[in-house]
Design a protein around this nucleic acid. Structure first.
Lengths: 113, 113
DNA sequence: TATTTGCGCAACCAAATAATTGCATATATA
DNA sequence: TATATATGCAATTATTTGGTTGCGCAAATA
């Protein structure tokens, strides 16, 4: 198994994103989490495992219950990857348009489709 | 095909993230993009298609070449999802710890594993 | 102690994904 | 016009994924 288990792959699934949102408010057990979804306990448990593997959640055992909590630090990794792009969507006059204009100028008079 | 094609799923793949980084600097053709990777042109082309499907990139045809450019606005969607979590990783005294402490207090004297 | 509950683990299955190969089409170029 | 180039599209395949079912174990409860 290669099992590329990184943060980006983990948050690709909508159920897992919902789980993260859910436990951001408070730590919950697998059963408590599963109650919030239509999926089975085992299905949710697998999602939690994936989140745990890439350290998006941590766990704390109390008796026979396991409370899963969000690890916000790991969430930050996604934000860090996005940061360089941020100025692009903030700046309406970004340079991407200019690059394309230049390319079109080079083609000037050749084809106009 | 169900084909859940959203931004989160699109950026889950490391090659696609690399493509986004690449074209953030300047618009490029599929061949120019493929040159930067070990993957075949078709493989890259498929990744570009996926990025285009969820509007992370837009295209502009010039002659027989197609220039793909980043659509930063769509990137922002990921950032928007992350925003609510931001204060959690910025605040070292976040309330998640408190929630867990409360749960442990309820269990006080019962089990201590 | 006997039973119920909470949970993880392993096997299995259908669907989705990533990549390859081959082909078609439109635009350049000789 | 004939050929080369840039690209998309379709079919195929191996791998990954998300989910189910069944089991076992430890902790709580009757």
């Amino acid at each position: 198994m290669k099992t590329r288990r990184d943060v980006f792959q983990a948050i690709a699934d909508p159920t897992r994103r919902a789980i993260l949102t859910l436990i951001a408010l408070q730590s919950l057990t697998p059963n408590a989490i599963a109650d919030q979804f239509d999926s089975s306990r085992q299905a949710i448990s697998k999602h939690i495992q994936i989140l745990a593997e890439c350290q998006l959640v941590s766990q704390q055992t109390i008796g026979r219950e396991i409370y899963y909590q969000l690890n916000p630090t790991k969430m930050k990794e996604v934000s860090d990857w996005l940061a360089p792009f941020q100025k692009l969507w903030e700046d309406r006059y970004n340079r991407l348009d200019n690059v394309l204009s230049n390319l079109k100028n080079k083609e000037n008079g050749k084809s106009e489709n």
